[in-house]
Write a protein that binds this DNA or RNA. Structure first.
Lengths: 219, 219
DNA sequence: GTCTATACAACGATAGAC
DNA sequence: GTCTATCGTTGTATAGAC
C-alpha cells in the first residue's frame, strides 16, 4: 500500500485543479482546504501566503509537463510532426470532456496574473518555455524534412500561439469550429514546409510542381 | 463647446478602461466611480448589477471597433493584406506604449469570464465575430491573389488566434520575441498563399520556381 | 438623478490552544 | 503539525434623504 499522500501535496493538487477551472483570484483558500480535505490552518502552515501556494502549483505544473502531457503522446507516436498535432488534439479533447471548462491552465493564469503578480509571471513564463522546448525539439528531429532555413524555435512559438488562441476561441464560442480552423491552417503551413523540402527527384517531378498539386489557377 | 459627457458614458468609459487593465473581477465598483468622478450611488442608478455594467462595456467595445480600431488603418492603407498586418502591428504598439499592461481587452475578458458568466460570454463572442468579419472581408477583397480554395473565414480565424496567442506570450515574457516570431510565421504562410497564386507567366518564370526562391536544398 | 450611510457576505491572514 | 476562532478589509448591493 502506497503511503498516504502528504497534506502539502493534497493542498497543491486541490489548488492546481481549482485554479485551472475557476482561476486564481476567484478561488478561495477555504475552498481549497475543503477540496483537499485539510483544515484551513494547514494551508498557512505550508504556505504563508496565497501567492506562495500559487508558486508551488506552477512548479508542480512544470514537473508534470513531461509525465502527464508529453510522455503519453511520445510513447505512442514516433513521428515528431505528428506528436505536435497529437498534442494539439489533446487540448481539444480536454476541452471536449470538460465541456470547455478546462482550457490551458497556464494560459489562463498568464492573462489573469502577468500584470498584477510579477513573481508568478516568471514561473508562468518558465512553463511556456518548457512547453516550447519540447515542441522545438520535435521540429529539430524533423529537420531533415524541413527547409534548411526553418527556425525550429519560431515554429514552436507559432504552434503555441495557435493553440492558445484556438483554446480561447473554442471556450468563447463553445464549439470547435474556430479551433479546428486554426489547427487546419497550421497543418497546411507545416505541410507546405515539409512538402517543399521533400526530395521527389528520384521518382517524381521536381518539388516545385508539387506545390501546386491539386490546385487550379484562377482564369 | 460640446455637451458635457453624461454620467452614464463616464461610467462606461471608466469601467471599460479599468476592465482592460485590471480585469473584471479585480476592479471594484468604488474604483470605477472614483475614476469616472461620479458617486457610487450613480452606478446603481444606471446599472443595477456589476454584470450589467459589463454588458454595456462590451456593447461599447462593439461600437468602437470600427471608428477606433479599424478605420484609422483602413484610411491609411488600401491593400487588404497589409491592413491585416497593420492591425497586428497596432496591437503590438499598444503593448509597447503601455509596457505590456494593455493586451487584447476582449481576449482577457474571454478567459476570465467565459466559464463563470455565460451571459457575458455571448457579448464577448460577438466582439470576436465582428473582428473576424472585418479580417475575413480583407481576405475576400484579396481573393484574386489567393488560391481559389482559400477560405477567407478560416484565414481570419488563424489571424485572430495568432494575435491572441502572440499578445499572451508578449505579456508573459515582457518582450516581443514571441510576438514577432508568430507574426513572421503568419506572414510567411500568407505570403506563400499569395505567391503561389500569382501569375508570373507574363514576365517571369512559372510560380513553381518562385516557391523555392532563395532556398537551398539540404545535401 | 445625486449622495451618504450602511447592510451583509467573503476574503486573506493571524493568534493561540493543543 | 493540527485545529478553532476571529481580526480587519474589501466587495457588491441596498435604503432612504434630498
Amino acid at each position: 500500500m502506497p503511503p498516504a499522500k502528504g497534506t502539502r501535496d493534497k493542498i497543491v493538487d486541490a489548488a492546481m485543479e481549482l485554479f485551472a477551472f475557476h482561476g486564481y483570484g476567484p478561488t478561495g483558500l477555504s475552498e481549497i482546504a475543503r477540496k483537499a480535505r485539510v483544515q484551513q490552518g494547514s494551508l498557512y502552515h505550508f504556505f504563508p501566503t496565497k501567492e506562495e501556494l500559487l508558486a508551488a502549483v506552477l512548479e508542480r505544473r512544470k514537473t508534470l509537463l513531461w509525465p502527464e502531457v508529453l510522455q503519453p503522446i511520445w510513447d505512442t507516436i514516433d513521428d515528431p510532426i505528428e506528436r505536435i498535432f497529437k498534442l494539439l488534439d489533446q487540448y481539444r479533447m480536454m476541452l471536449q470532456v470538460t465541456e470547455f471548462s478546462h482550457g490551458c491552465p497556464i494560459g489562463n493564469l498568464a492573462i489573469e496574473l502577468t500584470e498584477s503578480h510579477p513573481n508568478s509571471r516568471r514561473l508562468i513564463a518558465e512553463n511556456f518555455t518548457n512547453w516550447l522546448r519540447a515542441v522545438e525539439q520535435c521540429f529539430h528531429e524533423a529537420s531533415r524534412r524541413l527547409p534548411v532555413d526553418a527556425d525550429a524555435r519560431r515554429l514552436a512559438i507559432f504552434v503555441l500561439t495557435t493553440m492558445e488562441g484556438a483554446v480561447m476561441l473554442a471556450r468563447t464560442y463553445r464549439d470547435f469550429r474556430a479551433y479546428d480552423a486554426a489547427v487546419a491552417s497550421l497543418r497546411e503551413y507545416i505541410d507546405a514546409l515539409v512538402e517543399r523540402e521533400t526530395d521527389w527527384s528520384a521518382s517524381r517531378p521536381p518539388a516545385s510542381v508539387k506545390t501546386t498539386r491539386g490546385r487550379r489557377r484562377r482564369q
